[in-house]
Design a protein around this nucleic acid. Structure first.
Lengths: 165, 165
DNA sequence: GTATGTGCAAAACCTTTGCTATAAA
DNA sequence: TTTATAGCAAAGGTTTTGCACATAC
């Protein structure tokens, strides 16, 4: 017998409560635990990732880092990004259909989902228990194990929907 | 949160009824209408895309094409893929978190969603009205216009979930 | 002091593009 | 015959890698 969630007066979906950074705040400890070193460059990159809400591609991360440390090298940015990715602190989010570059965000405490505006690039994060419910259903129906679910919407935000030339 | 759990007999999610190919079947007409030419290479690539359920990246498409026409060129594959993408017959699907390459599938008649196995690459397509419901909620809550929604699960399929070394 | 990380440059990838010959209409 | 397209090779863009020096531990 399956359980189904039914929507009542107010929706199941809400804006994500953007508490983040706790994860990245613990980055130093994790790196140490992995036998990795805490370098100036890594600290800088972590700082930038923590400040920005994420959704940075490598180019953007590099350019922001360069403003504070003009000598930082692109290879270092790639290597750091890969390190954080492998250690699970950062995860790739493919936002739009035609994006060529991967974007990343620091791993959130509460799983959330995304809307990305095709015109201005604005990203809205939201949560909804229905997504987990869908995952549960899929899990049972197909006998699969799910490690990650993503739900991504693309389109035009409030400000852009009228202004399409 | 004002949610009630209700017992129902069946879930909202089901395996996608994989009718496809009608779209790609109409490709020739569309190409003609666009003033494009029907070449052997394009026919071959369309045939391959139609046979495979999709979920091919360019490399795979190229290697399959080469088996039947050893002279076909990678640039032709890219150009054809871009053409089909622009004309809306093919669309990119980012399946797994660490996939570097875009994969494509022929545009389905009924919108569906994906599960991809991280070990064997198997793809399961499914449908659920709840996804559209979520889109409606997001649309109202954020005053956005949604052009596309994707819901992608990754993990391990029935056959692979036990065999992880 | 030892081993890891950085910067730099080169290499490896993936995708696009300019050109000429070919073939579709 | 006319014009779009294929094949090829070269170029463009992104990511990775080898190596010597610097630096965290």
């Amino acid at each position: 017998m399956l359980l189904q969630m039914v929507r009542t007066k107010e929706g199941t979906l809400k804006k994500a409560t953007g508490s983040r950074g706790v994860t990245l705040g613990g980055a130093q400890g994790l790196l140490r635990a992995m036998g990795k070193r805490i370098t100036e460059q890594r600290l800088l990159l972590l700082e930038i990732l923590q400040e920005s809400k994420g959704h940075l591609d490598v180019e953007e991360l590099y350019s922001r880092a360069k403003r504070r440390d003009p000598h930082i090298n692109l290879a270092t940015v790639y290597r750091t990004r890969n390190l954080l990715k492998e250690s699970g602190l950062l995860e790739p989010t493919f936002l739009t259909q035609d994006s060529r570059r991967e974007q990343f965000e620091s791993k959130p405490e509460v799983e959330h989902y995304h809307f990305a505006c095709l015109r201005c690039g604005k990203v809205i994060e939201f949560e909804s228990p229905l997504v987990k419910q869908l995952e549960q259903e899929a899990k049972r129906l197909f006998a699969i194990e799910i490690t990650r679910g993503r739900f991504v919407l693309e389109g035009y935000c409030k400000d852009c929907r009228g202004n399409l030339e």
